[in-house]
Amino acid sequence: MDHVIQLDLGRLTVRELNNYLHHELPNVGHVSNVPGSSGHIGNVPHVEILNPNGMHSIAVGLDAPSEIDIRGHAGYFIAGMNKQAHITVHGNVGWSVAENIMSGTVRVKGCASECAGASGHGGLLVIEGDASSRCGISMKGCDIVVGGSVGHMSAFMAQAGTLVVCGDAGPNLGDSLYEATIYVAGKIHSFGADAQEEPMTAADVARVADLLTKSGITRDPKLFKRVASKRSLYHWHSDAGQEY
């Protein structure tokens, strides 16, 4: 059986944990192949974080290929600014999970609170349950797949990347969207300023299918609707009135 590094937040502080993940983990060369973890197999160290107990800022600022399993519910900003690491939370998370994610994968087995994946530049965020409001706010190139539904103002001012919602979307979806694309399988409560439904092309179906496969979520990609920007707010003109 592969060696798994166990770090217990019942004994360590978040500071000690992150210090280890930033400075010692990149030098650890263990091979990980643990069934039942996040499923990523490779020649990378595998860390299990025990007793997260709703603590904030766990595993933030990582920049090393690694497998991290957080065993339990966690607080705000989990896996913030992640690069390279594959992080799985076996529970629910608070606000702003994987905010500003750059690369790697962050997977939440439960539900996520507000602002999941906020301002993410790259990589993949998977939320197997529901995400609350402002999911994908300000996103800048990351991909987000939500197994359940998302709350109001999701993908607000989203600039680039893809948000896939397998359930429903709350009010004002995609308000002030730029070039990000949203796909929703369920009901859309309402669109925000400048967002509109557009026809699904074969390329869209392929994009959704690919992201569903990467996320390990089974859903018919043809069921999704495509939402993108009308681009009517890209240039100032007086007829757009209060939308500014």
Binding site: V14, R15, N18, N19, H22, H23, H56, S57, V60, G61, G75, Y76, F77, G80, M81, W95, S96, E99, N100, C115, A118, S119, R134, I137, S138, F156, M157
Partner: peptide
Amino acid sequence: PDWTGPDDLTIKINELREITD
């Protein structure tokens, strides 16, 4: 995009500190 009130700001600052050790 990722915090609103002063209580969240505390947690945000803490996150930035954690990232920069």
